[in-house]
Design a protein around this nucleic acid. Sequence first.
RNA 1: GCCGAGGUGGUGGAAUCGGUAGACACGAGGGACUUAAAAUCCCUUGCUUUCGGGCGUGCGGGUUCAAUUCCCGCCCUCGGCACCA
Length: 1025
Amino acid sequence: MKQYDSTEIEKKWQKYWSENNTYKVENSVEGKENFYALSEFSYPSGNLHVGHWYAFAVPDIYARFKRMNGYNVLYPMGFDAFGLPAENAAIKRGLDPRKWTYENMDYMRGQLKSMGASFDWDRSFATCDPDYYKWTQWMFTEFYKNDLVHRQLTKTNWCESCKTVLANEQVTNGQCERCDSDVIQKDMAQWMLKITKFADELIDDLDTLDWDHSIKQAQREWIGRKEGSEISFEIKTGNRNTNFVLLHGYTGDSKGNFFPEIRNKIEEKGFKVQCPDLPNTENPTVSEQVDFVLENCDFDENTILLGHSLGTVVAMKVAEKKKLKKLILVAPFIDGDFKDHPRSFSETFDYSFDFESIQHNSNKIIVLEDINDVAVSKTQIDNVCNVLDVNRVTTIAKKSHFCAESEPDVLNVVFSKIDVFTTRADTLFGVTYVVLAPEHDLVQNLKSDIENWDEVEKYLDEVSKKSDLDRQQSKEKTGVELRGVTAINPATGNDVSVWVADYVLGHFGTGAVMAVPAHDERDAEFAIKYDLPFKFVVLPSAGEIGNSRQLVTSGENAFILAAGSTEEPEQPKINAEWNAMYDLLGTLPDGVLPIGKRFCCTFTGKLINATEGFNAITTEEVIPKITKHVGGILKKTYRLRDWGISRQRYWGTPIPMVYDPEGKAHPVPAEHLPWILPDDVDYTPDGTAPLARSAELKQRTIDIFGEGWTPEVDTMDTFVDSSWYFYRYLDNNNSDNFASVESMKSWMPVDMYFGGAEHTTMHLLYSRFWVKALHSLALVPANEPYKGRLNRGLILGPDGAKMSKSKGNVIDPDEVVKHVGADAVRMYLAFIGPFNEPGNYPWDPNGVVGVRRFIERIWRLSEQTSDEKSSPDLEKLVHKTIKKVTEDIDRLKLNTAISSMMILVNAAEKSESISKTDYESLLKMFGTLAPHAAEEIWQEILGNSESIHISDWPTYDKTLCVDDEITLGIQINGKVRAEITIPADADADDVQQLTLKLDNVIKWMDGKNLKKFIYVPGRIINIVV
RNA sequence: GCCGAGGUGGUGGAAUCGGUAGACACGAGGGACUUAAAAUCCCUUGCUUUCGGGCGUGCGGGUUCAAUUCCCGCCCUCGGCACCA
């Protein structure tokens, strides 16, 4: 018979399938249900490795299984072709990234075809095709129009080596995940996608997905929803003599909406506020306004002077002459350089200032800048800051140019309060101090009130020198008190001290915490070190003493002890604070100590030796009550932050935005999409965006939009490209839409999505967000992309270590295919371990040869086929095997599916012959794993004329899957001592009689009396003596 | 520290509504065929043993006629989160 020549037949059938369109998929087929199987598409790195085979060839087995089971199966393939590695590799080799990428894709397509996978190549595409990124850009502009995208000045993760911004997900332990160099924080204007808007949905909708529990859990933790309260602590600064003068801007007056909230607040607190109507507001001259203020307003060294817009010019002129406590400049300027403004102020405004006097007279100067300001440019603010030593607060106003009735950032500068986030509002009565993160804006804003500023500044300096990693690892807590600043506990009205310490993180919650050392270990540590007081909150609760931990003090300090301390607490004493709590809760606390130098209470709330007779109340009940009582709000916070997608790189989707001469951003209209990536660019990275160097892009923008318009020059994070690619397979030639609604309705959501575990909190989360965003704009029917998800494991080198060139343990699949054939490689990878559980499996070169042997045995078994029926035993085994293989492939337990086929082949070889029908059943199952060999046998040896891969899956006869006779183990006192073969439906009494007659049984019963006879049909016999 | 998954021969792994632990394969040992090798085929292969048996699914307890499987307490590995208030 013919030898099995894998190289020859694989080439032959790959050609045949391609010519016969065997794997062509229609969007719908009469009488068939659609099934969308998807593998994460690949990056065109230039060469296929074993991981690609595991990712694509093994799921192909499942796709074929579903197809033969009557589904219309889509199993597509494309390329995620934009991105850093392509660009870096291209730079290294001095090639054009475009050419390099497309050449790689051509080469890899050939390699992918060698897998014998059932991809429908007509549906393929690459994300760098203008036809594709046109839609990426279109979606982005739709998001922009619907407030799902905004531009923001943010601290970004910057990799100095890659010269680009990284997403949080791309930073591991403060290092770049690609090149391991330290990531630094850099302030940059970034385009942000508002993923946080969907944070709740992204968590809650996980419940509707058929994913592994641990993948869902990882996403939940990544999003990191915390429910708690946001509570304000007012700051007491200055004294009763503090007074305010507020100066409005051009065309303004003291009524209208000139900071009404701020004026109310000032008055509420009993401070004097003067808010004059400046004369001639429609057409002012600076001298008349300044004179008016000097004549009509009272100033002293306790005056805080605030000016807004044109009012800042007046304010500065006033400050030349008056000594002030503070000068607050909201959107200031010191020149009349306004474009397109109805009035040039240069005519009547004198822009010569005596900056030295202003500086000298003003104890402190604060400048507020709105990054979206339409009236005052960044350059104008820069000019102010260059000549004056100011505290510059850059922010986003509620309304451009700080024109809203309520401008919280202005209020914050005038009247500071500390907003804290806490999940334990029930411990509010136990707050003994408040801590700000070193990055907190207030630290700078309170500068003039802080008596020990030198010390604070020194501390901030030290902290800024620490890397994130250092900060995490430093064991000892450090911090500095802000002397002269006091916060007020809103629950008690008591003063508490304010500290700055780096154990509070700037990026979580509000960047400030209320410290409750008695109920928080970190606060306790800090309080002990700096000798801060402890106050304990005990709710009358039904906690158990067994779960409790005692707190005892020694001297002034408190320590937390484990349960079981024998210290006897003294009788509780209720003080004023606890009475306040009682009033609020309507029930008396169990008890509160300190008494003398000893404290005692529990974490769970049950006081040891508690006064009896109080109603229990839970933390959950208390939190909303206390929060409401102090005017706080219940709030959720998330670990997840908005997704910054701007990259200062060349090889990516251009962000389709342009800026008008005022610098305001506009989306590129749909008719100009795709907004083509220019190719007249020197893309060598230098930290600025390569697109800024394109003359063509600049000219194109001017030609389309007009003189003075400039293009956005950043490109998008590649995770954007891959956030919607699964739609494009459905309808990849559609030029009117990214995919037709009908095609999305018939295929989406993806039934089974195969991919790597590393994407759990990146691609998998981003694309879920993307689909939800599209869904919220009614652009797609379903609101989740993937119904099923399977994370695959990793294929390790033969030494059990991760494959890497440096370790020399890399397996080249092309080499192995040459040696044993693609079929053996596919099957080996399926056999290596369960595909439905992500484990890491070492590549065993002998193992793949063993699988090749199995393929040859099936090949040779074709000689044993006969027109006669198989022997009854073999026939039964065939049906049992069909049942087992069907169930196992369906569950993606491919390893046991293969093993049961091996058992069948072992038995068939020993048998005289196997019926042609039975052999064909085996061959069909085998064909999912080894498509080429199966096709060759099917058509060339067995003489069938149609492809085996479009045949129907074999069926099994249930009655042939059960045995008439079964062999059971016999246990004596739980130990297996004998076995017996009996009819499957044997009567229990008969079984007992037969069993007790067996020699081995008699021997092991050793003459003892039978106490109990247990017979579990089909399972076990156990004799108890 | 918190959350999740897991720990079974020399190796990958099988068997979990509690019921003969180690299927299948790799490796190893022995044999057949061969001048020889490759290939192929057959046998053995958890450890131990005085050949009766004893011990064995990370460790220690428990429940049960019976535990890899269920319960309690630990240890270890991997993954996620982490000075998260």
